[in-house]
Simulated assay, not measured.
Amino acid sequence: MSSGRLTGRSALITGAGSGIGAATADIFAREGARVVVADLDKAGAAATVERIRDEGGVAEPYAADVSDEAEVEGLVEFAVRTFGGLDVLQNYASNRTVVPEDVAVAGADAAVWTRQLSVDLMGCVFTAKHALPHMLRRGGGSITNASSLVGWLPLESRPAYATAKAGVIGLSKSIAVEYGRQGIRCNVVAPGPIVSPGTEGMYTAEQTEVLAEHMAAPRLGRPDDVALAALFLASPEAAFINGHVLVVDGGMSAYAPMVPSFRRLAGEG
């Protein structure tokens, strides 16, 4: 049920054609926001918008590559022109195409790192750069950037991704410090393992079992889990929260790494 927590707000959400971004767009629209659904995948953005409109929400699609500053500028201007301003920015765009090539640092390919950083980190830089002036003119706004648990607890692979997500945290805190006194809040959601269309092919069945074993929760995460956390950060209830990293990982980062082994020894499965 909607409580109208974002009624009257205009929101721009990148990476909203699928996964966490799409779930966030759905929930924000249900909560009264007018949403620009941005994604490199034009069809994915259109599908999210159609779903929102079918539920009575207000949304417009926009195809953009967030690694291209000129395209981002056009995206922000579209959002402002369409809804008369910009109150909320949510960044979920991520480059999944480089996963097989993102290997050990000693074998790093500069092109792979550039492709990862240009979307996951510089995409957040560009959207903030062009959104901030509009938010300041309205007297404030809320920005939430998607990092990852991997941003400070890296896996044994994907160093470029881990570096990009660590950079998102630093960027977000910098924005919070620089613009907080002018009414801008900038926070971070840091998901752990999330089951979504964008991650389904990333893990084998055996790896998925390992992830589940490390949950302090009865299941793996879903896009809605992260979207609801983002809703809180964008809502009036979070008015005094700025520069915060909200971890949404089912408790994965809450305990020492030997706990699953101890569980097995105790016969707990």
Score class of each variant (00 low, 15 high):
Met1Ala: 13
Ser2Gly: 05
Gly4Asp: 11
Thr7Phe: 08
Ser10Trp: 02
Leu12Gln: 04
Ile13Leu: 06
Gly15Thr: 06
Gly19His: 00
Gly19Tyr: 00
Ile20Phe: 04
Gly21Thr: 00
Thr24Asp: 00
Thr24Ala: 06
Glu31Arg: 02
Arg34Thr: 12
Asp41Asn: 13
Ala46Glu: 14
Ala47Lys: 15
Thr48Met: 05
Val49Gln: 11
Ile52Asp: 12
Asp54Ser: 06
Gly56Arg: 11
Gly57Pro: 09
Gly57Leu: 01
Val58Asp: 08
Glu60Leu: 15
Tyr62Gln: 04
Ala64Phe: 01
Ala64Arg: 13
Asp65Glu: 14
Asp65Cys: 05
Val66Thr: 05
Glu71Asn: 03
Glu73Ile: 01
Val80Lys: 13
Thr82Cys: 09
Asn95Gln: 11
Arg96Leu: 09
Thr97Cys: 07
Pro100Ser: 00
Pro100Ile: 01
Asp102Cys: 04
Val103Glu: 06
Ala106Pro: 00
Ala110Glu: 11
Trp113His: 07
Val119Asn: 00
Val119Arg: 00
Ala128Glu: 05
Ala128Ser: 13
Pro133Ala: 08
Gly140Ala: 01
Ala146Asp: 04
Ser147Cys: 07
Leu149Gly: 05
Val150Asp: 09
Val150Glu: 12
Trp152Ile: 06
Glu156Ala: 10
Pro159Met: 09
Ala160Gly: 10
Ala164Leu: 02
Lys165Cys: 00
Lys165Arg: 02
Val168Asp: 10
Ile175His: 13
Val177Leu: 15
Arg181Pro: 03
Cys186Glu: 13
Cys186Ala: 14
Pro191Ile: 03
Gly192Gln: 08
Pro193Gln: 09
Pro193Met: 08
Val195Tyr: 01
Gly198Phe: 01
Gly198Val: 05
Glu200Arg: 09
Glu200Asn: 08
Tyr203Pro: 02
Tyr203Gly: 00
Thr204Asp: 10
Thr204Ser: 15
Ala205Leu: 01
Thr208Ile: 03
Val210Ile: 12
Leu211Glu: 07
Leu211Gly: 14
Ala212Cys: 04
Glu213Gln: 14
His214Gly: 13
Met215Ser: 10
Ala216Ser: 09
Ala217Ser: 07
Pro223Arg: 15
Asp224Arg: 10
Asp224Tyr: 07
Asp225Lys: 04
Val226Thr: 04
Ala227Tyr: 07
Ala227Glu: 12
Ala229Ser: 12
Ala229Cys: 12
Ala229Leu: 11
Leu231Met: 08
Phe232Met: 15
Ala234Pro: 04
Ala234Gly: 06
Ala234Leu: 14
Pro236Thr: 02
Ala238Leu: 12
Phe240Pro: 06
Leu246Ala: 07
Val247Gly: 06
Val248Gln: 02
Asp249Ala: 08
Ser253Glu: 02
Ser253Met: 06
Pro257Cys: 10
Phe262Asn: 11
Arg264Thr: 15
Glu268Phe: 15
